[in-house]
Amino acid sequence: MAQITAALVKQLREMTDSPMMECKKALVQAEGDIEKAVDVLRTMGIAKAVKRAGRDTNEGTVATFVSEDGKTGAILELSCETDFVGTNPKFTGFAAKLAQVVAEQNPADVDALKACEMDGSTVDAELTEMIHVIGENMKVMRFQRVSVENGALASYIHLGGKIADIACFEFAKAESAAADEFKTFAHDVAMQIAATAPVAASRDDVPAETVEHELSIYKAQAAESGKPEAIQEKMAQGRLEKYFKEFVLCEQEFVKDSSVTIDGLAKKTSKDLGDEIKVKSFVLYRFGE
């Protein structure tokens, strides 16, 4: 069993906003396993959600790039040493250029990216030059290229680059991509993703292990009620439905208008354009995770 240190209790408290003593009890019950301790607190109904606190080890930014035709894009995380540099336009601009290289040259990994051509040189040489100019170490932490054949992409950057995403939309008519109605819808959906951090675009895309894990928590909570098993099952399923509505993008209430869901917004936009607009997927990066 891992030692229950004050630092571990503090970390659990920051992650769950739960009382210090309850955190300590949960860690004892979970034998020092912080992830299991979170589940203990959730089962007890003390922790409602888990923050992603305490994972940032440095500073930096998340940048995105989407091609002019909206078909290809990339998201990239670039780290540095201080917040001052992390918000410097020269640094954030360089990160955006790196994202463009990823989108256009499709490197397999960070080493392949460093070998890519950039401004008549290589990414590695340009990165080294940027380190010398700014005077801080920098590192490409991760990136992902995104493309769509029949549709378009949209990106959104929040909190000065601490959160960013690329949303992928599919539709039948090529001209829909240029329509103002689609552009507004795509921007709003990308903003929604940054604001709410959904786990998937549709419930079918939620990993089976995530569904099983959530259901096990809800069943344990229902068991605490002492009600008949059939009622407990309905309670657990009801809470799972609530989970989908809260964490599945297309089922979420639109942050700008709670009377409509993202799926409802997609249907309205589809009707306006005489096309079928679908929110296919998204990539969300939160800096330091």
Rank of each mutant, 00 (worst) to 15 (best):
E149F: 10
S155I: 12
K162L: 03
V148M: 04
E181I: 14
M118W: 11
K139T: 15
V148I: 15
F143I: 10
T196N: 06
Q144T: 09
A174P: 07
K183A: 02
D180I: 10
C168N: 00
A190Q: 00
M191Q: 07
D124K: 15
C116I: 13
G151E: 10
G151S: 04
S176I: 07
S147E: 08
I163N: 04
D188L: 08
E129T: 14
E117H: 15
H158Q: 13
S121N: 14
F143V: 13
D188P: 08
A125C: 06
E129L: 12
V110A: 09
A154Y: 04
G120M: 01
I163L: 09
F169V: 03
M118K: 15
F169R: 01
I131M: 06
M191G: 02
A115G: 12
Q144S: 11
D180E: 14
A115H: 11
E126I: 05
R142D: 04
K173V: 09
M141D: 08
A200I: 13
E117K: 15
V199D: 01
V123L: 07
C168Q: 07
D165N: 02
A167W: 04
S155H: 03
T128N: 04
E117N: 09
N137P: 05
T122G: 13
T196Y: 13
A164H: 00
T184N: 12
S176T: 14
M118P: 05
R145A: 14
E170P: 09
S147M: 09
L153C: 10
G120S: 07
K183W: 04
A112V: 02
A179P: 10
A167D: 02
A154G: 07
N137K: 06
A186F: 01
I157C: 01
H132R: 10
M138P: 05
A179V: 08
A190H: 08
Q192D: 06
F169P: 04
V146R: 00
G151M: 01
I193T: 12
A164I: 02
A154Q: 00
M138Q: 06
G151N: 03
G161Q: 02
F171A: 07
T122N: 09
S147D: 00
E149A: 15
D188F: 13
A179S: 15
R145S: 11
L159S: 14
A152S: 12
F169D: 00
K162A: 11
V148N: 12
D111F: 05
G120V: 05
G120N: 07
L159H: 07
A177W: 02
K114M: 15
S155L: 00
V189C: 07
I157R: 06
E181H: 06
E175D: 15
H187E: 15
R142W: 08
M118T: 13
A164W: 01
A152E: 00
E181N: 03
V199P: 06
M138R: 02
V148L: 03
L159C: 08
C116D: 14
V146K: 03
F171W: 02
F143A: 15
A112R: 04
V189G: 05
V189E: 01
E181V: 05
F182S: 11
E181L: 09
R142S: 12
Y156F: 03
F185L: 08
R142L: 04
A115D: 05
F185S: 08
A194C: 15
D188R: 07
A164T: 00
A125T: 12
R145D: 00
V110E: 11
A115C: 06
A201S: 01
A154D: 08
A201H: 01
C168V: 15
G161Y: 00
L113T: 04
